[in-house]
Design a protein around this nucleic acid. Structure first.
Lengths: 344, 344
DNA sequence: AAAGCCTTAGGTAGCGTTTACTCCGCGCTG
DNA sequence: CAGCGCGGAGTAAACGCTACCTAAGGCTTT
């Protein structure tokens, strides 16, 4: 059928536009236009060219296209991990967030470029931006990088950050009402008669700070004095939380509830407490934060502060695309709600 | 300090190598070499150039680099979703796999490009390969695309597929011993006195087929006749499995155990059975497959066939990089083991 | 019938790198 | 002292594409 064409094809897999042009007997620019669906080329010719390209398995080389067009049809999703504390992309919260974002992004026919970043070396963000590998950036968690983010925000628009608002932030922020979450959790625990409420987690990132502030606000509302002995630091991993809770138990400090920074920490606390013979919620009530999938499946099911990640992801991607289109978009804080299950 | 340099810089954000060259008073090629650490350039000059680049926030444009070098330092992770059955990247199994792969890939300083593909349109794989956006491809699950994969395997080397071996497969395959998994599960159930064992799942993808074959082999070993009425089809989503189990209950068919294709399905079955008043494992024992994180947290904890995803991901990435280096690497099937928890 | 206009198509200049090739000057050897 | 090798740096040709500019016809318009 098209035997003459075949002779013209170079080795498979390195076909370029010029090859298709030769086969079709037209110029390169005509092929480019035809494949782009440009109506400058009459429909019949366009279809012919597309047909030839298809039967030969030709596809536009994106590296070249990206260079020429100065865009990549790709969104970078960045996971900043501070301290090299061993937290990985496999962390359930990140994973859920990444999944949701990926669903939203692919729905818009963009690709997702996943970046794990060990923050610390200054200029990491500039490096990512200037490499021009993505048309926009989604940053999951400010970690301790508020200043770095603020630094680029002035000149680099297509960026949306998940996290908590810090006075003077100039980047576009999407997040939950962490303060209210902390307050809600405490008020729920207090209503169930708890008075000695542990706060489990590292208080470094803005989200953590605000949850902690909410915790203190909740205590104050209830007229309970804040006791520093009940603040138990723990990194973001299961293992770390387990160690922290074991330490707490060993210390002999009395407590009847745990409010954890995240569900991952809460679940670790739950199992550690149970293994130590404590009944949950009988002896100790446990409240988490996030409402990851696991939360509803633990034994007992975890009471937690729910962040609607699906909505959050949708908003982030929405705002990002508006920014990429030149709009300036406002930061957005979504409400949280307490999901009462059985652990508290 | 370097005030004359500043005057030469164009608007921030679009610095190119030529600008750095001008600032340093050398040619473009010298800058390129210096930034690449090429020892042709004496160390002092190299350091000077790097310094200038750094203070001005210059970073090599990857689009251009990719085009010139014909490589991207990027691995494509592809999630083929058949049937448009609503399964999303947010599916726990995919997510866990993606997380593990991402950890392995970023460890090697490559980036991860996430691709959701609705298989169906022929040529989807060619399109991805020819777009030259990634240096290698990791495909999570053969789905129904065995032929498409086999088609490109001959000419496209850097590709590794997660799934189950099919006679005559020519692509590099990594997976678990699905047949043995099915057999193990049945043998475990039989040892606990179960005789009417349901198989819950779609029997379309190779992995499913082999798990099903293992199920039949297990029955045969135990001298139990295979009963087609106990094969309950269900797509890969929670919702679908729930419907399927409800249908099963309504049908009145007697059964005392469920072996599900995946943990997601098993967990859906678990809750559906409980909601219908069945006790697990009292009335019905439930066994899953995969051992996703959720499995150990359900009530009761799920007995399941464990696939070691961490090891699997490591092997996949390992083999892929060997293939990218030109080695040909063998397919690998990892053993599975039964994790007995309380649901069976 | 000359002048314009629209349609259709090609030529070609980049996009920003990397690297093979060339060139220059200096210290050595024979 | 001619010639040679070599360290050091520049020139220019790709990499594969898109889009601006130009041009050739075949129309309509005055």
């Amino acid at each position: 059928m098209d035997s003459p064409d075949l002779a013209l094809a170079p080795e498979r897999g390195r076909l370029k536009m010029a090859d298709i042009a030769r086969m079709a007997g037209v110029s390169i620019s005509t092929v480019s236009r035809a494949l782009a669906g440009n109506t400058l080329i009459p429909k019949t010719l366009r279809d012919q060219i597309v047909e030839i390209a298809q039967t030969h398995g030709y596809v536009v080389n994106q590296s070249a296209r990206n260079l020429r067009l100065r865009k990549t049809d790709t969104i970078g999703v960045i996971i900043p991990l501070a301290h090299e504390a061993g937290q990985m992309i496999s962390d359930p919260f990140f994973l859920e967030m990444v999944g949701r974002l990926a669903d939203e992004i692919t729905r818009r026919d963009y690709l997702v470029l996943l970046n794990k970043v060990i923050t610390g070396e200054p200029g990491w963000l500039d490096r990512i931006i200037q490499s021009h590998r993505a048309d926009g950036l989604l940053i999951i968690g400010q970690s301790t990088q508020h200043d770095a983010l603020n630094g680029v925000a002035a000149t680099y628009r297509p960026m949306v950050v998940w996290g908590a608002p810090i006075p003077g932030h100039r980047y576009c922020l999407v997040g939950s009402d962490n303060h209210e979450g902390g307050r809600l959790a405490v008020s729920h625990l207090v209503a169930r008669g708890r008075r000695r409420i542990v706060f489990l987690g590292e208080i470094d990132a803005p989200e953590a700070i605000q949850r902690f502030e909410g915790y203190r606000a909740g205590l104050m509302e209830a007229g309970i004095a804040f006791d520093p002995a009940l603040v138990i630091p723990s990194h973001y991993t299961r293992e770390d939380a387990q160690g922290a809770v074991e330490g707490l138990l060993a210390s002999g400090v009395a407590f009847d509830a745990v409010l954890a920074f995240s569900d991952v920490l809460a679940l670790a606390a739950l199992t550690t407490l149970q293994r130590a013979g404590k009944r949950v919620p009988g002896d100790v009530a446990v409240v988490g934060f996030d409402d990851i999938l696991l939360a509803q499946h633990s034994t007992p099911p975890l009471t937690t502060i729910r962040q609607d990640l699906e909505a959050g992801a949708r908003i982030m991607v929405d705002l990002l695309f508006r920014r990429m289109a030149g709009d300036s978009s406002p930061s957005t804080i979504s409400p949280v709600r307490l999901v009462a299950r059985e652990s508290a």
